[in-house]
């Protein structure tokens, strides 16, 4: 049953990709296709990194309604970005190459995540406290970023502002290569760990009882999540509920949380929504800028539904 549904999802994903590449083709085919292929690569990579980071994060927190962005991880990333612009100035920031910039932003983010989030995972707070902490961390770092924005000169401000909103049109092509490498490596690692992740999902004590080295595994998974969030946020900006929507849909469709099935399913659902949605918006409706809004809207509703259904059981 799982296999057939996975195949169905894969077919839908391929259809979305084909639609994205071929709908409304005009002019110099080779040129247009090349542009679209680069954009497709970036979209697929964002889809996969958001899906994987959400599933991993839910597994390591043993909680189905948490996502990295609810816990403020993308706020951490954006704060790192604002901090870099603030320290280097708009010109200095623009002058360093895309790769170095990204590396510096990721390092700042991982350092912050290690200091703020790891204690939470090892202390095993209950869920409401965890959510509250996450929301507070997100708010704190968004406010700190706002503060830095006010201290910036207008030119530097324009540089960071462009990066602070989810935008599926203005993808940063310079980061696509680095992002692809990170996402591919993370996906390979997830696949390698898929059985261990099933055990991790049982929670800290049961996992230790079954022979998992908890603190090392949790730290590794958190590191991978931070990297994936950095990749997707760097490319398109923060997306709050997309990951949640994708993980919840994949679990509904497959009816299991076994990672050997759930990880590929979540990635495929994300590709279908993002690439397929972008194809429809960009080539059929001609109003591309609203895909972000629609996805966040649907994701927000999924979040509320999960809260509602969860509170009944």
């Amino acid at each position: 049953m799982h296999k057939r549904r996975l195949v169905l999802l894969a077919v839908l994903a391929v259809v979305s990709v084909a639609a994205f590449l071929t709908l409304g083709l005009r002019g110099n085919l080779a040129f247009v296709l090349q542009i679209r292929a680069v954009k497709l690569l970036a979209l697929v990579q964002v889809a996969v990194s958001v899906a994987l980071s959400t599933v991993l994060f839910q597994t390591v927190t043993a909680n189905r309604i948490l996502t990295p962005s609810i816990m403020g991880l993308d706020a951490l990333y954006l704060f790192g970005q604002a901090l870099l612009v603030f320290l280097l100035g708009g010109l200095g920031y623009a002058a360093i190459g895309g790769g170095w910039k990204f590396a510096a932003e990721v390092l700042i983010m991982i350092a912050l995540a290690a200091v703020l989030l790891r204690p939470l995972l090892t202390a095993r707070l209950d869920m409401s406290l965890l959510l509250l902490t996450g929301v507070t961390i997100g708010l704190l770092f968004r406010s700190l970023s706002q503060l830095l924005f006010r201290l910036l000169d207008p030119n530097a401000f324009a540089v960071v502002q462009a990066a602070s909103f989810a935008n599926f049109n203005a993808l940063r092509a310079d980061l696509t290569i680095i992002g692809s490498v990170v996402t591919f490596a993370a996906a390979a690692l997830c696949w390698h760990l898929r059985h261990r992740l099933d055990v991790v999902a049982l929670g800290r004590e049961a996992a230790i009882g079954l022979g998992i080295d908890w603190s090392r595994t949790a730290a590794l998974l958190l590191l991978v999540v931070a990297l994936l969030v950095a990749v997707s946020t760097a490319l398109v900006g923060p997306v709050a509920f997309f990951g949640l929507l994708v993980a919840a849909l994949a679990e509904r469709i497959l009816g299991t949380r076994r990672h050997a099935v759930l990880l590929p399913a979540a990635a495929l659902v994300a590709i279908i929504l993002l690439v397929g949605g972008q194809a429809i918006f960009q080539h059929l409706l001609g109003s591309a800028s609203t895909l972000g809004v629609v996805i966040e809207f649907a994701g927000g509703i999924a979040f509320l539904l999960l809260l509602y259904l969860g509170s009944r059981t």
């Binding site: 898929r194 055990v199 999902a201």
Partner: peptide, 23 residues
């Protein structure tokens, strides 16, 4: 024992073999 996510009884019991089979 509190478990998140959908897990069938057989899946749960199978995880008991994890130390031997590694999945």
């Amino acid at each position: 024992g509190v478990f998140a996510g959908r897990l069938t009884v057989r899946e749960l019991v199978s995880l008991g073999r994890f130390p031997h089979s590694q999945g």
